[in-house]
Computed example of a mutant assay.
Amino acid sequence: MSEQTDNPTHVIVLTGMSGGGKTIALRALEDLDFYCVDNLPAALLPELVETVDTSRGDERTRIAVGIDVRSEDLERIPGMLSQLESHGVTAHLIFVDSRDEVLIKRYSETRRRHPLAQPKRSLADAIAEERQLLRPLIGIAEHIIDTSELNVHQLRRLIATEFAARSEGMTVMFESFAFKKGLPLDADFVFDARCLPNPHWDRALRPLSGKDAPVREYLDAQPEAVEYFNDIMRFLESWLPRFEKADRSYLTVSVGCTGGRHRSVYLVERLTDALREHHHEVISFHRELD
């Protein structure tokens, strides 16, 4: 593994309790331009870092790896992290946790099976065994994220704000929301899309969201929607560089409509895609969908 000096490689190892939210956290890091791999055996971590470093050349390398209790070499993780640090890699171990009763509730509400579940073992016993197996890792974790009181949206936002300060430049966070459920409290800019044609009134489009192709095609065909998108982009292209020069770590742009399902989601998706073409740190949230 080559030494990293001028542009050090950053590696985040995400581990923790099954059902705690590791997959959601990993997806949030992927939105922040991390190269993400889930369920990687710990022994392959140095090889992965070397391979990604080589493939990216002079580009900044940021890697996030999800490792769960099914890995047979959990005890090797501390040694792997030390090995990476000795080669100039900046490594972080993040543990995603949640209270046992919350984990039991989450599993009861889905069809997912706990990775340690067995026919004659209760879910509570499986969780207790997993916690025991992961105890050495929680003891050395740089940061422990307790998701007991967090929903999907809040966890993704926490990951974004936590690692925005470690990234180069400013992270822009787009958020869709429903006006009828209140304004986002942490929005820096709010745009109101309720003036646009509403797909809700089309019976075929009503059950869909702004992420779905039929809704996107419907709004793409509306001159008002295109004009509104273009106006927001012009505003952002003019003002984001000025906020970045003011050393802002992150900035939140919220777009709302009546139900937070069609028009606002559509605009957030389009804005996110457009801004990512020339601004690496962009992440999106959909408050009423997540």
Results as ranks from 00 to 15, higher is better:
V190R: 14
S238G: 05
I144W: 09
G139S: 15
M1A: 14
D53N: 11
E101S: 12
R27K: 14
D146R: 05
E227G: 12
A28P: 00
D33P: 01
I104V: 15
L219C: 06
T9R: 06
L116V: 07
R60Q: 13
E130V: 03
L185I: 10
R276L: 06
T23P: 05
N7R: 09
S148N: 09
D68M: 03
E217H: 10
G19Y: 01
P223D: 09
R287I: 11
L74K: 00
L158I: 03
G79E: 07
E142I: 02
K245I: 11
S249Q: 11
A204C: 08
L137G: 06
M173S: 13
M17V: 06
V52S: 08
R248H: 11
A128T: 07
R203S: 15
I140H: 13
E277P: 11
F95L: 02
A178H: 01
T9Y: 08
F189Q: 15
S284H: 07
D290F: 03
R56K: 15
L84S: 06
I138P: 12
P214I: 07
V152H: 11
A160P: 03
E175F: 12
D38F: 05
G19I: 00
D31P: 05
E162T: 10
F179D: 04
L45P: 03
E281S: 14
R261K: 14
E3N: 15
G259I: 02
Y266L: 05
A225I: 01
R27E: 12
D192E: 10
I127T: 04
L289T: 02
L48Y: 08
A91R: 00
A213Y: 06
F34M: 08
V282L: 12
P78K: 05
D231C: 09
K22T: 02
R135N: 12
R166D: 09
S209T: 13
L14T: 01
G182D: 06
R27T: 12
H153R: 13
V11R: 00
P241S: 09
S249H: 09
Q83Y: 15
E237L: 14
R234Y: 15
I127L: 13
D100P: 10
E72W: 12
P115V: 01
D146L: 03
L205Q: 02
L240N: 03
P78L: 05
G20W: 00
H262V: 02
R131V: 04
F285D: 00
S249L: 09
W239M: 12
N7F: 06
S108E: 14
F243R: 04
